[in-house]
Every structure is written in C-alpha cells, then in structure tokens.
Simulated assay, not measured.
Amino acid sequence: MAPLNLLHLDSSARANSFSRRLGRTFADAWASAHPNGHYVHRDLAATPVPPIGQGWTEICDELLRRRITDPTRYPDAVRTAAQREAWAVVRPLLDELLAADVVLIGAPMYNFSIPASLKAWIDQVTFPRMSLAPRTFVVAGARGGSYLPGTPRFPFDHHESYLRDFIDGHYGVDDVTFVNAELVNALVDPTLEPRTREHEESAATATARVPDVVADITRRRARP
C-alpha cells in the first residue's frame, strides 16, 4: 500500500480540550500504523484563517460560469488583483486538503454547532460542485452535554449533523467517522456534576475506539 497522507485540523479555543486530546490520540495511532506517511497539522484556533471576501465570491462565480470542477484548474478563474489576493489565502489551505488521503478534524461543539474558526476554513476551501471522494474524514468531537440519539438534546445537534451532511452532501464523501466525548461540561458545571461518571465513560469509550478506527481505515484504504 502506498503511503497515506494525513491532514490534521484543530479548532478548539482550549489548549487541552477533549477534541484536541482525541485528535492527538488518533494522530499518534495513525503515525504508528503509517510511519512512512506524510502528516500536516494546522491549528485553526492558534492561526485563524480569514473569512471569505468579495474576491473569493468572484472566483466562485467564474468557476460556475466556466463550468470548472477540476481543482487543478481553479487558478484559471483568478484574474483581478482582488481575486489574486483571495487565492493567496486559499491556495495553501486547498493544497493541503487535496494532498490528504485522510482528513482528521478536531471539532468541539460550540453553541450547538462548530467553532467559527472551523467554519472559516470550510468556507475558504469549498467551491461549487467540488468532490473530495475517495478521501476519508474523521471527526474528533467533544460536546458539553449529551446529544446522542434518543436524548432530549439530540434535535439541537447541529454539530455532527452539519459536518456529516456537509462532508457527504457537498464533498461527496460518505467515508466519515465521528468519535465524540459527551458531557464534558460535567467537569465545570455544577448542574451537570451528577453526570460526571457518564462523561468519564463517554470519554474513555471514545479514546478506546481510536485504535479500531485507525485499523478499520487502514484495512479499507488497502483494498484494491
């Protein structure tokens, strides 16, 4: 099997967050399983990408008009100074994404959804009619409460549901795995303190899943 490239994104504002811990656990297990693979880490909280602007929207309009769907031809739509300025931001981000076989996203839930830093990255690297198949995505998530199916807060989960719908619906990638730690606010919120044991079990289960997720992806990517 050819070496596989891993792109690892972190987006938590906390230096030692559960999403970062889970992501690091995955990255370490991946490195052990793929010592010859290439690894790129981008911390979107420490080094935020800017929001998209007018130049970026003009590039998208031109891609649509010219029916360009091949990312290698995206630069053909870059003409004006504003567009070149926008493309200078996009290009390194997009190059990292396109070079990756596996994309690992550390994504805590903020206000029922994802951090603004991660949304800004998604906006920068997402273009019309863009397919990223057959890449694999893994999301290392952490949520303050419990948003599992069947729980009262499940309908408010715009975190996993958004990322799953986006990765599959826009990027055309159905190979996505979520590893989430629930109820992390039990460690700081007195009203959730009685559920600390549930959080500990959830975090331990998520961490224990990581080697199996790595092994499963490795098996699937090795198939001819």
Rank of each mutant, 00 (worst) to 15 (best):
A2H: 05
N5F: 03
S12M: 05
S12K: 10
A13D: 09
A15R: 12
F18M: 14
F18H: 15
A27L: 15
A33H: 01
A33R: 08
G37N: 09
Y39V: 14
H41N: 05
H41K: 13
D43V: 07
D43N: 12
A45L: 03
V49R: 00
P50H: 01
D61I: 02
R65N: 08
T69D: 03
D70C: 09
T72M: 04
V78I: 14
T80I: 08
R84S: 12
W87A: 10
V102W: 09
L104V: 13
I105D: 10
N111S: 08
A120K: 01
A120G: 08
W121D: 14
V125Y: 07
T126G: 05
M130P: 02
P134R: 09
P134D: 11
R135T: 07
V139A: 11
G150D: 03
R153G: 02
F156I: 01
F156L: 13
H159N: 11
Y162F: 15
F166Y: 14
I167C: 11
D168Q: 11
V173Q: 05
D174T: 08
D175W: 01
D175K: 13
V176R: 02
T177L: 00
F178V: 08
F178K: 02
N180P: 13
A181E: 03
E182I: 00
V184E: 08
L187G: 06
P190D: 12
H199L: 04
E200Y: 02
T207R: 14
A208G: 11
R209N: 10
R209P: 00
V214F: 07
A215I: 01
A222S: 14
P224S: 14
